[in-house]
Design a protein around this nucleic acid. Structure first.
Lengths: 158, 158
DNA sequence: TATAAACTTGTATTCATTATAAACAAAGTT
DNA sequence: AACTTTGTTTATAATGAATACAAGTTTATA
């Protein structure tokens, strides 16, 4: 769980203004548990800020990412970027059915970090550990987990 | 390193045809060390197959992904999907500067797998461990690797 | 060889994201 | 207060990766 204030502070420290829109976006990012996309943020805040523009959402997200306060998660299965305000190394669990992404604490991610920094020659800037599968709810909904074009899949692996 | 034959076999087993185009795409996926995008594959093979269509590349990749023979990696920093023929759990190291992605073997990824499968309630279908940073070559190119003071960067590009 | 099914190709379309330019707001200055 | 500068939002246009689709081509099989 991330404090909204941390995100706002990183804006402030960079000399940027805390506008109502930015505040709301940071709040949403910090408190939301599914990691939202730009569109999700836009849709959610539209009622509170009728004049809000998608461009503002993208702008704010881009700033936060550039400041390193927020991470971008690609590949949730839908074709859009999800945003994660928790920049500590942790695991994201993405559901391939409902496309929600939740966090999962792990004791091993730290080791990965050390392993790579020590042995790769890379200057590591961040990480993204994404596991995907079916969340408990979606396992109930779709007993056999059939996706739309499984018909030409002559029975093998996943 | 992945054998081309493994990819071709998974097509065959699924009852699909091994066309010259598909063969070439699988070959490229298996032997390439940077994990290519659809466009990169297209550009590379265009000289050998002047009639090749981007659609074919996307079709083939989609099939291979559906069969589980190939993974999609989002978010290399450029806005496109990269493809990875190595489906064994391993780490991808993406360079934020040159956007190449290389593999890094790790002993800990196995543990992650077990940890999650056991404790999350998810039916795990796959994983994607992506670290990003500056590759050794790009560290040379950009001597100071300036990353903290990017906020007063007025030249605002992406 | 006929016929159907599987593939490829070219193009049109969709849609997330980025760029651009104009309107707007918040200081700062005199 | 009016004037200026700079930062921000907004609306809209442009870009470009990925997908859909229609039509042509190849392959398998009888």
């Amino acid at each position: 769980m991330v404090e909204t204030a941390i995100l706002l502070d990183s804006l402030r420290k960079a000399g940027l203004r805390i506008t109502p829109q930015r505040q709301a976006i940071c709040e949403l990012l910090a408190t939301s548990h599914e990691h939202p996309t730009a569109t999700m943020i836009y849709e959610t805040l539209k009622s509170r800020f009728p004049s809000l523009s998608l461009a503002t959402v993208y702008n704010t997200l881009e700033v936060l990412v550039r400041l390193g306060a927020v991470n971008v998660l690609g590949n949730a299965g839908d074709g859009m970027a999800h945003y994660d305000a928790d920049t500590e190394p942790h695991i994201n669990l993405a559901c391939v059915s409902c496309h929600k992404i939740v966090d999962f604490p792990s004791q091993y991610v730290q080791f990965l970090d050390e392993e790579i920094s020590a042995a790769s020659g890379y200057r590591v800037l961040g990480a993204r550990v994404l596991y995907y599968g079916l969340c408990p709810e979606c396992q109930q909904k779709t007993p056999m987990a059939r996706r739309r074009s499984d018909h030409d899949d002559r029975g093998n692996n996943a």
